[in-house]
């Protein structure tokens, strides 16, 4: 697992208070990990802070799963 993926997972575990084993790449924040709309706003902010990236509103709306988050951040970091 990449360093980014590892860090994303840690943030998700911490913010949503879920078991680490549940945070699979396919897991949906809302459907599988019990997040509500405010949780996802906070989560995106935490990603921005941790990775020092900007995630604009329209991009944030497309981040539904753990993998979506990892892919977006990896792309930003590579750019």
């Amino acid at each position: 697992m990449s360093e980014i993926a590892d860090k994303v997972k840690k943030i998700v575990v911490e913010h949503l208070g879920v078991e680490e084993s549940k945070v699979t790449p396919e897991a949906s924040f809302i459907d599988d990990l019990g997040a509500d709309s405010l949780d996802t706003v906070e989560l995106v902010m935490a990603f921005e802070e941790a990775f020092n990236v900007e995630i604009p509103e329209d991009a944030a709306e497309k981040i539904a799963t753990v993998k979506d988050a990892i892919d977006y951040i990896e792309k930003q970091k590579a750019a």
Binding site: E42, M45, E49
Partner: peptide
């Protein structure tokens, strides 16, 4: 300000 928690008000 953009880092303000969405849970601040509630």
């Amino acid at each position: 300000a953009k880092r303000l928690s969405p849970f601040f008000i509630p």
